[in-house]
Write a protein that binds this DNA or RNA. Structure first.
Lengths: 127, 127
DNA sequence: ATTATTAACGCAACATTGTTGCATTATAAA
DNA sequence: TTTATAATGCAACAATGTTGCGTTAATAAT
């Protein structure tokens, strides 16, 4: 594994994501960062943060991709993001329901590497 | 509800989707249809078919959107697409696992209108 | 503290995907 | 057959994501 560097772009973007209660899209991060860096750099930083398992990717029901920071113990070697995400149709906020992990019975001979559970509807604030 | 017409584009596209064992993207449908109609028409036909509840939309883990025909009894007034979809990382085929419906406990005051469950990994053929 | 290595960046250019307006065509009903 | 309008084709546009390459700057080595 190659060494990864701490740059101002990376720390700023990570700060934005960590300070947000909801998952953010590339465009939202771009707006919040007040063009601290190029649009391309944001894409690259986000990829890096996902690869380093510092943030995780969420696919919304409309296909837009959002990012949220990972809340997990530091000593975990490997963890999964198998919790549910809720996308509100009114306020358009995407939140991680970290404690809601669905159960299901898969047919044999499937190897699962990644999961994405997203619900949409109305969140408690908009209901 | 406005009347909807049966056009050659609509029937051809629906035929393609119905004959496919896996979910198809807009681009895949375009290729399979051998440019029977304009790219824009495909978008509009797909929207129409989703609205009419003849096909359903699946959001893949990479954010790409796929379409699959709905398998449900004709007399059902309303049905949900709460089954799991599996996206194979090797053959890139997206299949509906129609009988796998996950269960989960949502906190109170959430109103769910739509769901999207997608897993990725290796399908039985590629394992 | 200085130098060397190379990860990360900015910029430009491009590719893909999805949307909108409008004139024209064709479906289905009158 | 006529009529209303849903559906289409085309062009233009917008948004999003990718790639190549020369430059900048973070980190390690001296």
């Amino acid at each position: 594994m190659k060494a990864t560097r701490n740059t101002t772009a990376k720390t700023t973007i990570l700060e934005i994501i960590k300070n947000s209660a909801v998952a953010l899209s590339h465009t939202e991060i771009q707006t919040l960062s007040h063009t601290i860096c190029d649009r391309v750099t944001i894409y690259r930083v986000l990829d890096r943060l996902v690869r380093e398992d510092i943030i995780h990717k969420i696919v919304n029901l409309d296909g837009t991709i959002k990012y949220a920071s990972c809340h997990h113990a530091h000593n975990e070697i490997k963890h999964t993001h198998n919790h549910i995400h809720f996308s509100c149709e009114k306020c358009h906020l995407v939140t991680c329901l970290e404690h809601v992990e669905p159960t299901f019975d898969l047919p044999p001979n499937y190897q699962v590497n990644e999961v994405n559970f997203t619900l949409s509807g109305l969140c408690p604030n908009c209901l």
